[in-house]
Design a protein around this nucleic acid. Structure first.
Length: 570
RNA sequence: GCACCCGUAGCUCAGCUGGAUAGAGUGCUCGCCUCCGAAGCGAGAGGUCGCAGGUUCAAGUCCUGCCGGGUGCACCA
């Protein structure tokens, strides 16, 4: 248990005692009471807002509440002092032994920070979900890294997580892909071909065309679409999914499930999902108002089958069937989310590119309607990635020609650097990814800085191999600073998991690395602070708990981000 | 025209889902490696948190309205 969680429990217990003794009125909610690290370390180790949040509902002066609470907490062995500060904060300073105990407890506890927050509830995280029409590009890379790290984070926080990829293999873009492969097939037979606007010109289809030739020989030559289209749709998407899976593997992303859009057609799944909405009176025939502002040239009123998404927070109702009776792209998406709801998830998360922002409300409306509001859907939008090299824009791909692929990035800097760097920004902030800076070995490269801290820990521990750690005796402020930072880890995990924001883990690791490096640097001036004491195994035994604990937390944190901790910097 | 996201130090960005004197990196200024664990270290300057109201003990954080930037806006996916 982290010191913060323990102190929180103590504070709540003390408040309950005060209630029992009549110092506080009955019927108060303690939900808003928090124990957190103060911004300014001079205020102490922890602070609680209990007195301030209880002042109003209890009708008491916050100072009086704080004073009474202070007296109770000071009686605890782990509290060195409790001081009431101006607005009504209660600042706590903990006994030195608390921090030493924490370090001793963490040094062999790889599960430190793991949380029961999720209570094993089922979460489905859908990410990447790129059209199977080509290799993954940088935008997908960010989504892949973000989604994967979020999934790991939720696992670490006690959720039962499924990582899922929705294959958009049902729409017209698959016809385009199939025709493109056909062109490459003709090419493989030595024919001259021309790629039009509605085909994919990328080199990655050359091999697919050749593979097709190897498989069917000249059977499809000079034949119409009706002969080969259906076969090529399958053949081409299968080939693309092989490509995409390999791309994901290069990034160390492993999905639990690939869900095919195509599998929804002709099976009644879409009809079933819409029947659920219909049963709730949310499906009707109607004509939409033309959009305000600029009117599309070819706009004309058409009667369509509509989903009354406005009943669930959307701005306008959305068509599920086109005027010709075919499904819109929204219909299978509804069915897919209905499938997820039926599979019993307590919570759904979709990771989209920012260009799909306009899609969020209708998707939330659909899930809300399908689950009667029981299953929350959180949609995380990932902003664009701007690629640069030494500050200069970096655009062309070696492979795809028109766009930079995931492979281009991973080949250049490796999966670890790719992943960490992608998480050094909040998901909804644009990300500048500089190839040169990403591999630079300096303090302003967070990847290196965190890896370096871990490598230093491991280096010390290799030197001290065979020495059994003793309980640490902390006495320097830099040592306490590291211990305090370690104490924050479980809180960071929970806060990040609750907010669905894995970047918080990356920033925390940077902070931890920073206080650790600071302590290391102090060892320059004060040899007594060094972890490895050449001629004094006893002293070393007392010192190495700290680097052990730090490496435990950095490993765990990097593990969440999907980054391999470095044993040494080479 | 509407919706969503963003606006914080010269620059790139954090800010723990309402807490105390708003932080980090970089850049700038000054001081530090004949020896030590310097792919650096220490110190300093730098801010009307886009603007204006509102909510309350407390607002960078929540609400409203503007300003500026990005994204998306009937049967395409």
């Amino acid at each position: 248990m982290s010191p913060f969680a323990e102190m929180h429990a103590r504070v709540i217990a003390s408040l309950a005692e005060m209630q029992a003794e009549g110092a506080l009125p009955q019927g108060l909610s303690f939900d808003a009471v928090v124990v957190e690290p103060p911004r300014d370390p001079a205020h102490g180790d922890m602070a609680t807002n209990a007195a301030m949040v209880l002042a109003k509902p209890s009708g008491l002066n916050p100072r009086d509440i704080a004073q009474t609470l202070a007296g109770r907490l000071e009686a605890l062995a782990l509290v060195a002092s409790a001081a009431v500060a101006r607005p009504g904060f209660l600042n706590l300073r903990l006994a030195d032994g608390v921090w030493a105990d924490l370090v001793a407890a963490v040094r062999n506890a790889p599960d430190y920070g793991r949380s029961a927050l999720g209570h094993g509830s089922k979460v489905n995280v859908e990410y990447v979900s790129a059209n199977p029409t080509g290799p993954l590009h940088v935008g997908h890379t960010r989504g892949a890294v973000f989604g994967d790290a979020l999934a790991s984070l939720l696992e670490f926080a006690g959720y039962d997580v499924t990582r899922e990829y929705y294959i958009n293999d049902g729409g017209t873009q698959v016809d385009m892909l199939a025709r493109s492969v056909y062109l490459r097939y003709l090419e493989a037979h030595g024919r001259q071909v021309e790629f039009t606007d509605d085909t994919y010109p990328g080199d990655y289809l050359v091999k697919v065309g050749q593979d097709l030739k190897d498989r069917v020989g000249d059977a499809y030559l000079d034949k119409g679409e009706q002969v080969w289209l259906a076969d090529l749709r399958v053949f081409a998407t299968d080939a693309m999914m092989v490509l995409i899976r390999a791309d994901l593997a290069a990034l160390n992303v492993e999905m639990d499930r690939f869900f095919s859009e195509k599998s929804l057609y002709g099976t009644g799944r879409i009809e079933d999902a819409l029947a659920v909405l219909d049963a709730r009176g949310l499906i009707y025939q109607g004509t939409l108002e033309p959009p305000k502002g600029k009117l599309p040239e070819d706009w004309e009123p058409r009667e369509q089958t509509l989903f009354r998404s406005t009943d669930h927070g959307d701005d306008v109702d959305r068509p599920v069937k086109k005027s010709d009776g075919a499904w819109t792209y929204f219909a299978p998406d509804i069915a897919y989310h209905w499938d997820k709801v039926e599979r019993g998830y307590d919570q759904l998360i979709d990771v989209f590119g920012a260009d799909h922002g306009g899609y969020v409300k209708r998707m939330k409306a659909a899930v809300s309607a399908l689950s009667d509001g029981r299953v929350p859907l959180d949609v995380k939008l990932c902003q664009l990635v701007k690629l640069t090299k030494d500050g200069e824009p970096f655009k062309m791909s070696k492979r795809a020609g028109t766009f930079v692929t995931l492979r281009d990035v991973v080949d250049e800097v490796g999966p670890d650097v790719t992943r960490f760097t992608m998480l050094t920004r909040k998901n909804d902030a644009p990300l500048e990814f500089d190839f040169a800076r990403a591999v630079e070995q300096s303090k302003d490269n967070p990847v290196f800085y965190v890896q370096y801290a871990h490598a230093r820990c491991r280096s010390v521990l290799r030197k001290a191999e065979g020495i059994v750690p003793r309980d640490p005796a902390l006495d320097d402020t830099a040592e306490f600073a590291v211990a305090r930072k370690l104490a924050e880890w479980p809180r960071v995990v929970e806060v990040a998991a609750r907010a669905h924001e894995p970047h918080r883990i990356a920033f925390y690791l940077y902070d931890l690395a920073q206080v650790f490096h600071a302590l290391w640097n102090r060892g320059n001036d004060r040899p007594g602070l060094r972890f490895y004491q050449e001629s004094d195994p006893q002293a070393t035994a007392a010192k190495i708990s700290l680097p052990m604990a730090v490496s435990v937390v950095i490993s765990a944190g990097l593990g969440i981000l999907g980054v391999t901790p470095a044993e040494e910097m080479r």
